[in-house]
């Protein structure tokens, strides 16, 4: 028998594992009120109308995680965070594109 079957299995949050309000709060060290405020500000856009039915995709989980880190390290105003997160995502996409184009044009 394959002994690796007994190993702990990692679950991807927002993919294998539902990411509801409680799970995201726990992961990111937020209380539910703060997460509700952040969703109001547009930091993340969970699926579902009522907070108790919210589901965060893996991408939305990452936005909350990075927002938490930026707010802690740089003391950013929560109202600025959605713009910062959008720009980070855009810059990451552009950097990937540049890497790809460099592969095409480089010898």
């Amino acid at each position: 028998m394959d002994s690796s079957n007994k190993l702990p299995v990692a679950e991807i949050i927002g993919h294998d594992l539902d990411a509801d309000l409680e799970q995201v709060c726990r992961l990111c060290g937020l209380d539910s009120e703060q997460l509700l405020d952040w969703v109001q500000e547009g930091i993340a856009e969970p699926r579902g109308r009522e907070a108790r039915h919210w589901q965060f995709s893996a991408r939305q989980v990452r936005r909350v995680w990075v927002a938490r880190r930026l707010s802690r390290d740089l003391e950013l105003d929560p109202r600025a965070l959605p713009v910062v997160l959008d720009l980070i995502e855009e810059v990451e996409g552009l950097r990937r594109r540049v890497r790809l184009l460099e592969r095409v044009i480089e010898d």
């Binding site: 990692a10 679950e11 949050i13 594992l17």
Partner: peptide, 20 residues
């Protein structure tokens, strides 16, 4: 720790190992 990583994990994702 040795763990089993599920297929399909992408960059920047959070994964959980329950009880670890």
């Amino acid at each position: 720790l040795k763990v089993r990583i599920p297929a399909g994990v992408t960059d920047g994702r959070q994964i959980r190992l329950s009880g670890q």
